[in-house]
């Protein structure tokens, strides 16, 4: 099952790929992000980060509270360059 279970839909990452990276020594969500682009697509980790955290808990024996979440980056939702460039208040 796990090899076909998608965790990060934007970047097309499976549970198996995430488990493999954890086995390779990447032990935090930030490192998984750097390694695999986890949570770096248009949804900005909304659907995948909590799932990846669960995988990390299962693999490392840590509790969810012990896992530090990646920094949330603005904008909260995708905004066009044209809108952001506007001087209209």
């Amino acid at each position: 099952m796990a090899d076909k279970t998608l965790i990060c839909r934007c970047e097309d990452l499976t549970q198996k790929e995430i488990e493999q990276a954890i086995d390779d020594g990447y032990s935090t969500l930030d490192e998984l992000k750097c390694r695999l682009r986890l949570g770096m697509g248009p949804c900005q980790g909304r659907s995948c980060i909590s799932l990846a955290r669960r995988v990390l808990c299962q693999k490392t024996g840590k509790t969810q509270d012990e896992i530090i979440l990646p920094t949330s980056r603005p904008p909260v939702v995708p905004v066009s360059l044209g809108t952001l460039a506007s001087d209209k208040k």
């Binding site: 697509g41 900005q44 920094t71 980056r73 603005p74 905004v79 360059l81 044209g82 460039a85």
Partner: peptide, 17 residues
């Protein structure tokens, strides 16, 4: 950026850091 490449004005920004 949109002054340099106006065609990009409809492209969405997803993240800044």
């Amino acid at each position: 950026l949109t002054r340099y490449a106006p065609i990009l004005k409809h492209v969405n920004v997803i993240r800044q850091w």
